[in-house]
């Protein structure tokens, strides 16, 4: 029943190359072959058009306008000129870049934990589960917990004082110096486990032969990790670093909103918070749009790298 020639032709495009191929004119056949594909992508294309393309185009256009949501007038580059002269925006931008420092820190710690877990240390699955748990919990609930935990007379400081470390019991959320770093600390607390899981998954998929061979050649543990294991999971490391860089530059609104509300005195504001505050609390829509475009430009550079990493032909082969 299965004519090999038919199977071969349908391998490229299963439908439309069916048995009645001979009787249909070529044009109709071609159209039919493709029609279902187009129909199948319609919902997704509409959704992404509405949810991504339309707002992206609008935000760029509206960044050259000022006024309220409903009455906009063209102002050229005034919004951009304003935000780059605005101390609060510069502070926000700087804070996002400060948070970037968490990325190498998390990468190193997560790598260390992953290679240790990869050694099959006893109870590694329990450790992995506990360290990964924070990553999936809602940042709002977590942030709220930390906003209580990190108060001057909250859980952490009470604990520190009780063990005689009152000298390091800082006002974590209430001091201009500390607030943004406390936000960074919560980000690390929540994101570290993601790195561990990504690195460990990559390590576990490495062929054991290479490790075996290196060991027979007398490689030490340290050499094995730095010369054999870590270089082989380079893509995973790059993926994690890019993902986290995007996260700390443009996905940390929840932490700031719940932990500090950008305070004290805007000292822990980030670009997202600046956008929210101008757009929805102060009604300076033009500034919010211009700041959003700045975030978009910064994110685009990283998204391009992310795309290159994830769209590699061999990526995604392991499920």
């Amino acid at each position: 029943m299965t004519d090999p020639a038919l199977v071969r032709s349908s391998a490229a495009a299963p439908w439309g190359a069916a048995a009645d191929e001979r009787v249909r004119p070529a044009g109709a056949r071609k159209r039919r072959r493709q029609l279902w594909s187009y129909l199948f992508v319609v919902p997704a294309v509409l959704g992404m058009g509405f949810g991504f393309v339309f707002p992206l185009v609008t935000v760029v256009r509206n960044s050259f306008y000022a006024g309220s949501f409903y009455k906009l007038s063209f102002v050229g580059f005034d919004n951009y000129r304003f935000i780059f002269g605005d101390d609060v925006f510069i502070r926000s931008l700087t804070n996002n870049f400060r948070l970037l420092l968490t990325v190498p820190f998390m990468t190193i710690v997560a790598l260390l934990v992953a290679v240790i877990l990869n050694d099959g240390i006893r109870g590694w699955k329990v450790y992995r589960s506990s360290i990964f748990l924070p990553y999936i919990l809602p940042a709002a609930g977590i942030g709220l917990t930390f906003s209580v935990f990190l108060q001057f007379n909250g859980g952490l400081n009470t604990f520190l004082r009780s063990v005689g470390l009152s000298s390091i019991a800082a006002d974590w959320l209430g001091s201009q110096t500390w607030a943004i770093w406390s936000v960074g600390g919560v980000v690390v607390w929540q994101q570290l486990g993601f790195g561990v899981v990504v690195f460990l998954a990559a390590l576990l998929s490495l062929p054991p032969e290479v490790t075996e061979a290196a060991r027979i050649d007398g490689a030490s543990w340290w050499q094995l990790q730095t010369k054999i294991h870590v270089p082989q999971i380079r893509t995973a490391i790059e993926f994690f670093m890019v993902t986290e860089a995007i996260t700390v530059l443009s996905w940390v609104f929840t932490y700031v909103y719940v932990l500090t509300l950008g305070g004290p005195g805007n000292s822990s504001s980030v670009m997202e918070f600046y956008i929210w505050k101008n757009g929805f609390a102060q009604g300076s829509v033009g500034l919010a749009n211009a700041a959003a475009v700045v975030v978009l430009l910064i994110a685009s550079v990283l998204i391009a790298i992310y795309l290159r990493l994830r769209a590699r032909p061999d990526a995604g082969a392991r499920l």
């Binding site: 495009a13 707002p55 995007i246 443009s250 997202e272 975030v295 998204i303 992310y306 795309l307």
Partner: peptide, 28 residues
């Protein structure tokens, strides 16, 4: 399937995963 725009759709999807919602929220 076969259709025009297959690769752009796939690439667009991968890129869109990381687009920060804050950029979209004001127009939306």
């Amino acid at each position: 399937g076969t259709f025009r725009g297959r690769t752009p759709l796939l690439m667009g999807s991968i890129a869109a995963i990381m687009v920060p919602p804050v950029v979209l929220v004001v127009p939306m």
